[in-house]
Design a protein around this nucleic acid. Structure first.
Lengths: 133, 133
DNA sequence: GATAGGGCTTCCATTTACTGGAAGGTCAAG
DNA sequence: CTTGACCTTCCAGTAAATGGAAGCCCTATC
């Protein structure tokens, strides 16, 4: 199976698949003409990677997860630890964004949004110390 | 005022301030020895930038906001439009993260996290089609 | 006058996870 | 035998800094 089929089957762009080989996440075979040949196991890994990335795992985390995936003697605790760490990071990011959102919503609500130059948004940005609440 | 004082006053690292000059966000004067000299207006801009970045505005958005900040004839509608666009992006990002969070929480809850190899997290990653709910 | 230190300068490399594009080899169809 | 689709590698660029090296500048001290 060539790279285009692998891309369609895994849902990843061919460019990304080449990149994943580059950084050592996968190692497809090569046929005589130099084309990559994807086995079922390669496809499984690509699907795995696409799914893990879509859940926000970093490439480093994906590498670790893939190693555990390959290791029939793994402990599920190792997987769970990585997942929980990532969950904590997601929670932190959500909290940060919600904080931003709250401030920004307050400012946009306060802004008239007309042709006049007065703008609480700019006022806040220029001087965060002067509380515009 | 030299860069170190400007950094302390604005809360931005000196490296970041040099970078902001590099990309044309600020233009501090130079003294005879080549050192950057920061005026009050430079400090105001740096504070503005730090605040805008902390609200998640991109450098491009910061550039636009800074131009509006400088423009005494601006319409607040222009500012509000940028802010609302950004607010929508934040909302989209939050929704995406919450979706990830929900899936990941479900999986980690289902994982025993012990020394055994069986792991619903890996199962899901390997085969998203096989719903593990 | 020499030197030590802290601060300043520029420039280059690295980070994340790709993505775009150029130059060129391979293969099947007509 | 040429066309077009597919494949290859390599180089560059993205966002927003950050780290580090090599080397001025300035002040204080010996």
């Amino acid at each position: 199976m060539n790279i285009k089929q692998a891309a369609q089957a895994s849902g990843l762009p061919a460019k990304t698949i080449r990149y994943y080989e580059d950084i050592g996440l996968i190692a497809p075979l090569r046929s005589a003409n130099g084309y990559r040949q994807f086995r079922d196991s390669d496809l499984h890994k690509l699907t795995f990677l696409g799914r893990a990335r879509s859940l926000g795992f970093s490439i480093g985390e994906c590498r670790d997860l893939l190693a555990l995936y390959e290791d029939r003697d793994r402990a599920s605790a190792d997987v769970k630890r990585i997942a929980r760490q990532h969950l904590d990071q997601i929670d932190a990011k959500i909290a940060e964004l919600q904080q931003m959102r709250a401030t920004l919503a307050r400012l946009t609500d306060a802004c008239a949004g007309d042709e006049r130059p007065d703008c609480p948004i700019l006022q806040d940005l220029a001087c965060a110390g002067t509380d515009t609440r």
